[in-house]
Computed example of a mutant assay.
Amino acid sequence: MFAKQGGKIGIVLHIYWYEPLRDIPVDRVAAQRALGFIAAWFMDPIMYGEYPPEMRQIVGLRLPAFSMEDKRKLANKLDFIGINHYSTLYAKDCLLSPCNYHDDLLKDTFTYGTGTKDGVLIGEPTAMPTFYVVPNSMEKTITYFKDRYNNTPMFITENGYAQPSGRNIEDMLNDTNRVEYMEGYLTSLVSAMRNGADVRGYFHWSLIDNFEWTYGYTISFGLVHVDRTTMQRTPKRSAKWFQHFLKNEALHHPQEWQQNIAHL
C-alpha cells in the first residue's frame, strides 16, 4: 500500500479574454466561440464528458465521441483550475466574411483576434506582442470559469507585465507601469472574489527576470532585476509594492499608497 500524499491535481490553461470587436451579435458570438476553443475545449470534457457546443457547431463530426466509460473516467477528476491570464483581444466573426488570420490558434474558430479597434489599441501595449493592459478582464475571466464550472477552486498561476530589457538600470528598477498593472489586475481579482469566486491563490510571473522562451532576455517579467554579468539581484519598485500589498497596506490605504509610491 502506498501512503497518501494529500496533494491536489488540476490543470493550467493560458487564457486570453475576448471582447467583441463590434457591438453586433455575430462578434459577441465570436468572442464566446474563441473562449470555447481555448478554454472549454479542455475543461468541458473533464467537467462534463463532452466537447463544448461552441466547438461542435464549427468542427462537427471531426470531434470524437466520448463513451460512457470515457465520461466516467473523466468526470470531475480535478481539484482545481489553474489560470494563466495576462491580456485581452477583440474578436471579429469570420463566418460571414473572410478574414486574414495571423493567429493560428483562432483559425479553426472562424474568429479574428486583434488588439486594435478603429486604430485604437484595446489597452496599453507592453513589451510582449498581444499583451495589452486591460485590468477588468481578470474579473471577467474568473467569472467565466466560476459560472461555467460550478465555481471549482481556482488559482491564478501566472499574471504579470512584460518590460523591455536592455535599458539602463534605473529604468528597469523604476517599473511604475508594472506597479499600475499589478494594482489594476489584483483589484479586478479581488472584485471577482468578493462576488463569490473561489480563488485560492495568486502567483505573479515572475519573481526574477529570466529567459522568456523565444524572447530570451529581451523582455523581463520579474519583480527582481538580475544583472546577467554579476548575477546581482535587485528588487524593483514592483517588488516593494507587492510587499506592501501582501501586508494589506496598498489595498486598505490606496490614497496613502499613491502618495507614498514615489518614495519607494
Rank of each mutant, 00 (worst) to 15 (best):
F155P: 03
M172Y: 00
W205Q: 10
G196C: 03
P164H: 00
G201I: 05
K146P: 00
P135V: 04
R167V: 01
Y181H: 11
V134S: 09
H204K: 01
L96Y: 13
L207T: 00
F131D: 08
T157A: 12
M172N: 01
G115V: 02
I169E: 15
G119F: 06
P164G: 05
P98F: 07
N151W: 08
W205V: 08
G123H: 10
G119L: 12
K140C: 01
I142F: 04
G113V: 04
V134Y: 13
T214P: 11
F131W: 15
H204Q: 12
A192E: 05
N159Q: 05
A162S: 15
W205G: 14
Y101T: 07
G196W: 00
F211C: 02
A91P: 12
V199L: 13
N168E: 08
Y112V: 00
P135Y: 11
L96V: 01
G113F: 10
E158G: 02
F211A: 01
V179Q: 03
G201K: 04
A127G: 12
G166V: 04
D104F: 13
V134D: 08
G160A: 07
K146D: 06
Y215Q: 14
T214F: 06
T214A: 14
Y132R: 15
S206I: 05
I142A: 03
V134E: 03
G216I: 07
F110E: 09
Y217R: 13
V179G: 03
F131K: 10
T176V: 08
T187I: 01
Y185S: 06
